[in-house]
């Protein structure tokens, strides 16, 4: 396909992805908000709105802030199609984001390119379907599988899925910028050691940790850029 035609095709693809994404995301949102009321009709009891508001002021505000931050950070990584899918299917930090980045690294594509858009969408869609299938099979087999999955011997394995994931990812990404990794890890460790109450809010601590890592990377990026500009001028 010629460059111009490919560009037009991609622009059209993006346009329809956004239109489709908006319609389908809104449909899922309506279904999710309506489901408690439909269940309420079945159970003959409706949600207690004052209680919902009270609990929302307690925990909901935190998720409102983290939802906005996640949106701002992850949309650039996931592209258009990947973003709609990821926000519909959830489990962003523990699966969708690492999965999309892993896929992107495997085939070596750059952020913001058409290749990244396609690869991220394929990766998020595949991982979401795998989760849906595993959960559906699990629910189907829940009764016979429950004793095996809940056996005390296996609990340490399943309780540590997230550390297992982050260990592997650390090995992969720390190699890209060892200095920044060491500084960020040290600063965050000191924070958690001296303010242990923060351990319960680790997902929120990703924000300052990420900001520090980006700041350090930017400084090193600018330094490299200046050096290469100096080299070119010379």
């Amino acid at each position: 396909m010629e460059n111009r035609t490919a560009r037009e095709y991609y622009e059209n693809y993006l346009k329809t992805t956004h239109r489709l994404g908006r319609i389908l995301t809104a449909s899922v949102l309506i279904l999710l908000l309506a489901a408690p009321y439909v269940i309420g009709i079945y159970l003959k009891a409706m949600p207690n709105i004052p209680a919902v508001l009270k609990a929302f002021l307690g925990v909901g505000i935190v998720y409102l802030v983290s939802g906005i931050v996640e949106y701002l950070i992850y949309v650039p990584m996931l592209g258009a199609g990947g973003s709609y899918l990821a926000f519909i299917t959830g489990n962003l930090i523990n699966m969708k984001i690492p999965c999309a980045i892993n896929a992107r690294d495997i085939v070596g594509v750059k952020s913001g390119t058409p290749e990244n858009e396609i690869i991220a969408t394929l990766s998020i869609a595949t991982s979401s379907l795998v989760t849906i299938i595993v959960l559906a099979l699990g629910v189907l087999l829940m009764i016979p599988l429950q004793p095996v999955l809940q056996s005390p011997a296996l609990q340490p394995a399943f309780e540590n899925v997230v550390p297992a994931l982050f260990g592997a990812m650390a090995c992969k990404y720390y190699r890209a910028d060892r200095k920044a990794a060491l500084i960020v890890l040290t600063v965050m460790t000191l924070l958690f050691v001296f303010v242990p109450s923060l351990i319960g809010s680790t997902s929120m601590m990703v924000i300052p940790s990420g900001a520090l890592a980006i700041g350090l990377s930017y400084l090193s990026f600018r330094k490299k850029q200046k050096t290469s500009e100096g080299g070119n001028e010379a």
């Binding site: 650390a170 990404y173 960020v184 890890l185 990420g210 900001a211 980006i214």
Partner: peptide, 18 residues
Amino acid sequence: MTAMFIGLVSAYIASYIG
């Protein structure tokens, strides 16, 4: 993007040390 990931992973690993 790589830096953001370093930040994400570091926050969790640091919490394990903490």
